[in-house]
Nucleic acid binder design. Sequence first.
DNA 1: ATGAAAGCGCTAACAT
DNA 2: ATGTTAGCGCTTTCAT
Lengths: 337, 337
Amino acid sequence: MPEVTLRDVARESGYSIATVSRVLGGTRTVGAQADRKVRAAAERLGYRPNQVARALRSRSTGTIGLVLPQITNPFFPMLVRGVEHALHSRGRGLLIADCDDDPELEASRISALLDRQVDALLVIPVHEAHSRAAVAAGAQRTPLVQLDRRCGTDVADSVAVDNTAGMALVLDHLAGTGRRRVCFLGSAGTDSAAVERRTAYRNGVAALDPAGAERVELGDFSVEWGRAAAERVWPSRPDAVVCANDLIAVGAMQQLRRMGADIPGEVAVTGFDDVAIASLAEPALTTVRQPVTGLAEEAVRLLDQRLSEHTDRPHHAIRLAPELVVRASSAPGTTRE
Amino acid sequence: MPEVTLRDVARESGYSIATVSRVLGGTRTVGAQADRKVRAAAERLGYRPNQVARALRSRSTGTIGLVLPQITNPFFPMLVRGVEHALHSRGRGLLIADCDDDPELEASRISALLDRQVDALLVIPVHEAHSRAAVAAGAQRTPLVQLDRRCGTDVADSVAVDNTAGMALVLDHLAGTGRRRVCFLGSAGTDSAAVERRTAYRNGVAALDPAGAERVELGDFSVEWGRAAAERVWPSRPDAVVCANDLIAVGAMQQLRRMGADIPGEVAVTGFDDVAIASLAEPALTTVRQPVTGLAEEAVRLLDQRLSEHTDRPHHAIRLAPELVVRASSAPGTTRE
DNA sequence: ATGAAAGCGCTAACAT
DNA sequence: ATGTTAGCGCTTTCAT
């Protein structure tokens, strides 16, 4: 089936290619009659604009590239979904690239997307330091926004959750429900989530437990580490275990129960992110929900802004407020859920 | 920074733009000297081919569209990862579209991708019946492969796991570990996974438990349903609960333990898919691992095949063998893990 | 308000 | 083996 082109619509409507283009593109005002006739003809023939030709001419593909560390990491699909919807609602497409947590792959994916003439890039960097060069290079060639994580502070725009505020929500909640012996299971990483969450914990815990700042175990963001860390802190009998993300919290809950702890009776457990597993865990996990839709929308808005302005203003670093989701794992008092 | 074009490389190397195109595209044999000089010039100028221009001329964007029901459904990201890697290793790009489980959105996403001139479509249909028209329409316009699920049997090529074989693996395993009172928690859906898994259970269970074919509870593929269904079957004291996917199994395990059941001592539980949560559950879940990488590669191979042949041969329906992953939830005997 | 024509960067006939 | 030429389908001057 031969594709219908502008030429065909022009012939069918009796107007020139240029007029048809203007009507369908809404580029300039045209006569009411021309408008009607052209639209009718386009409709009749089932005309669909060829985006590739349009892109070649107008130097804009209407396509955004998203580069992320690992699509199978449960937090990222939520972000991808948000980005996809934000883009499609503006008529844009989303080219996706998965890096397998490898900075070298990341660099090659970034240039592959640039070769495909994406209008802009959204990057969740694999690593704070090792991704820096590739991200900076990308930002040189096209508008680029870092999402969720970032490489240092001066590479490009960035959008992320306010980790400090999230940690404060958790600590306030624990204080309000009478917990007074708190510990923290976090990540030793240098990425912003790891650093900000542990710093916020250390700074905020003093208000309800002066010794809490000392009860900190650092590993990585995994279930396995959660289990190991729980084993290390349980002998000191905390009445609250604050975890830097949901995976750590799930591991910690498993290990605590295995050691005979009563959650939330004896000890409360909290997570961060609100991935699907948080609500499925036993008991259901109290956690900090990231504003994923908001993050995605802010990121896309920033890109649009960079695309429309041509002036390069200083980088924006946007932080969005999270929300506390209270579930059974932190129910007050000495009752089993 | 002005983009370097073929024209620039031609001027720099002293050859014509056609020769440069041939060298860089590897389209035809050229003189050794020309080859060297052109490559050197391209290198020197940092030439990157413009994929949009190439696409317009050659009528091939090197881009594949993937349409899926819900990226946040934990099974799909594994598939996306497989597809992404299979495509990138062949120099292709992946445009992704999420349908929010809505057939109408799905139809609009499919045409949006076609408007972007994708070379082919990979579709995980939202619904067996409601997706059919849109998928068939897509298959009319471009090579299309259905992945994981499919709309009826005659719409387009399809690639999926062999559900029947997977269920057989589970039943053999349970038989071999002495389970003799089996029940099934499945989905009432009409999609191939739901139908094939429950049929395979019914046909296969007779060998170890003649009454097993009657102990079947059907709902949907969710944790909630797993909980509810477990509550219904536990009074009959099965020694094995076969679930149609991992989510049902996780819910069933939660409810069984809540009711005081000992897993796997009293009762074994099995899942299907091997999503991340299967290994994180307590106890770790015995399940059927889908060959995700294989599925993705087969799908991409089929697309390539359709793209190179122009003849349309009958539709292929490819089934790949799954693998049993034995974990604690089905350990034999009357011991706690 | 409309049309004619140029050309985005590339590939593929068609020449030589 | 290499060059010349003609577009791919569209947007956008520049005319009228």
